[in-house]
Amino acid sequence: MRLGDDDLARLRAALAGRPPGEFHLPEIWGEDWGRLWIGERVQAGHAFLDAVRAGRLAGVEDTGRKAGGGRVYAWRGG
């Protein structure tokens, strides 16, 4: 799975409405997150991490930590 331009635009919009700080992917993914099968969640999480590492989501950093059942990201604003 790879996040397309529409996915990234939706996630950027969700981030824009948040104050800077740490977050987990489901917090910005939206209500559809709970409807995804576990395998789809894993794929989406990996695709998000790839996008962050590739610099496709300006202002988002991978903290390198996991807590509360998932990877922790930091939103620096933007």
Rank of each mutant, 00 (worst) to 15 (best):
P20C: 03
D7C: 01
L49Q: 11
M1E: 00
D5C: 00
G70Q: 01
R65L: 14
L49K: 12
A67S: 15
L8G: 00
L25Q: 09
G17S: 03
R65K: 12
W75D: 02
I28R: 02
W75L: 03
P20N: 02
G59H: 13
L11Q: 06
G70W: 03
W37E: 15
H46K: 08
F48Q: 04
P20D: 01
G70H: 03
L25A: 09
D32F: 14
D6E: 00
A74Q: 15
L3P: 04
R53C: 06
R71S: 03
D7S: 06
G69Q: 11
G55K: 08
W75G: 05
Q43H: 07
E61Y: 05
G45T: 11
R56Q: 14
R65E: 15
V52A: 13
A67C: 10
Y73F: 10
L11D: 01
H46M: 06
V72Y: 10
T63G: 07
I38G: 08
L3Y: 09
G17E: 10
R65G: 05
G17W: 05
L57F: 12
D32A: 15
V42D: 10
G68D: 12
A54V: 00
G78L: 15
G21R: 13
Y73I: 01
L8R: 02
L11G: 05
V60R: 07
A16T: 13
F23V: 00
G68E: 11
R76T: 14
R71M: 05
G68N: 13
E31C: 04
G30D: 08
G21P: 12
L11Y: 09
G64A: 10
R2S: 11
A58L: 10
G78N: 14
G78V: 15
E27A: 01
G68V: 03
A16V: 13
D7V: 02
G30R: 14
G59R: 14
W29N: 03
A58P: 12
P19W: 05
D32I: 12
V42R: 07
D32G: 15
E61A: 08
A47L: 13
A67P: 14
E27F: 00
R65V: 09
H24N: 11
W33I: 02
R35Y: 15
G69W: 06
A13N: 11
E40M: 08
L25P: 14
R35N: 11
E31F: 05
D6G: 00
L8M: 01
D32E: 15
K66L: 09
G30A: 12
G55S: 06
P26Y: 03
V60F: 05
D50S: 04
E31H: 12
K66T: 11
V52Y: 14
F48L: 04
G21C: 08
G4I: 01
D6R: 03
I28L: 02
W33T: 01
F23Q: 02
A51M: 03
I38D: 14
A67R: 14
D5W: 00
W75P: 13
G17Q: 06
G78A: 15
